[in-house]
């Protein structure tokens, strides 16, 4: 055993490390990419779901847009109000109150209440089914087909198919992916605290609605007359609630002859 071999090996490997280290140090200066130190901080605060609901390509792109282009800190629906507070702290802007939103499926035409026109045996997907004659097998052209295209689009396991229609559960973060996917445009993003909602999207007149579904909106305008706050309007044969005016007094819920308006506090 020779001491020199130990010294040689230590020196040679150490020397190599030193040379490469210096080389890398120089290269780091030459190929320096300037990154705003705020970007990684904002990126860490974001949920990291990369769902694209903010309108940017993903959390990285949104973080970059917030820091460099001054994009709004309220764009991320997944993080909700907590995230807005945190982001505004990081960016030093005034915090804005943001109400929590959820997605809502405007249909309650379940297997029991809605009729089918024919038996659909094709690809198990709403978009495919909706291409067919009569926009799918459901008697109502506007109703939920229940083949779960929205379920596949949801990254948060927030949609279940119950009794043949899509139902949003508590996991919903209002990212809006299902809204884009639904071929019937049935899903809407609405304020979570507004519990009185119209559970129908049919733009048919009263008679065909009645023929196809026992709980559809027949555009009878009883709700419009019952509302004291001018918050519900029947347009294009469908009742629509203005959530800013609605006080959830339940007058319309009680009047609706087909139970198409639902108070979810009781349900």
């Amino acid at each position: 055993m020779d001491v020199t071999s130990i010294v040689y090996s230590a020196l040679s490997i150490g020397g190599l490390g030193l040379v490469f280290g210096i080389g890398l140090g120089v290269a780091a200066k030459v190929f320096e990419v300037k990154v705003d130190p705020l970007i990684p901080i904002v990126r860490d605060a974001l949920p990291g779901a990369n769902c694209g609901a903010c309108g940017f390509a993903g959390c990285d792109a949104y973080a970059k847009a917030v820091v460099e282009e001054g994009a709004a800190v309220t764009s991320c629906p997944v993080g909700g109000a907590d995230l807005v507070v945190e982001l505004s702290k990081i960016m030093g802007v005034e915090s804005i109150e943001m109400a929590k939103h959820v997605a809502y499926v405007k249909c309650q035409g379940t297997c029991d209440t809605a009729k089918e026109k024919y038996i659909y045996n094709g690809i198990y997907d709403c978009k495919n089914a909706a291409f067919l004659q009569g926009k799918g097998s459901k008697g109502c052209e506007f109703g939920c087909l229940g083949y779960g295209t929205c379920v596949k689009a949801c990254e948060f396991n927030a949609i279940d198919i119950i009794d043949g229609i899509a139902v949003i559960n508590d996991n919903c973060v209002a990212c809006g992916q299902c809204v884009l996917e639904c071929p019937k445009d049935l899903i809407e993003i609405i304020p979570e605290d507004k519990k009185v909602r119209v559970a129908c999207a049919s733009q048919d007149k009263g008679k065909p609605v009645k023929e196809n579904c026992s709980t559809g909106c027949i555009a009878c305008k009883l709700c419009e007359k019952a509302c004291e706050f001018d918050a519900i309007k029947v347009e294009k044969n469908i009742a629509r609630i203005d959530y800013e005016k609605c006080t959830e007094c339940n007058a319309c819920v009680l009047k609706c002859p087909t139970k198409a308006i639902i108070d979810y506090r009781q349900a």
Partner: peptide, 9 residues
């Protein structure tokens, strides 16, 4: 050592 430095580069 050589490879790691190269990859960094």
């Amino acid at each position: 050592l050589v490879i790691a430095s190269l990859v960094q580069l």
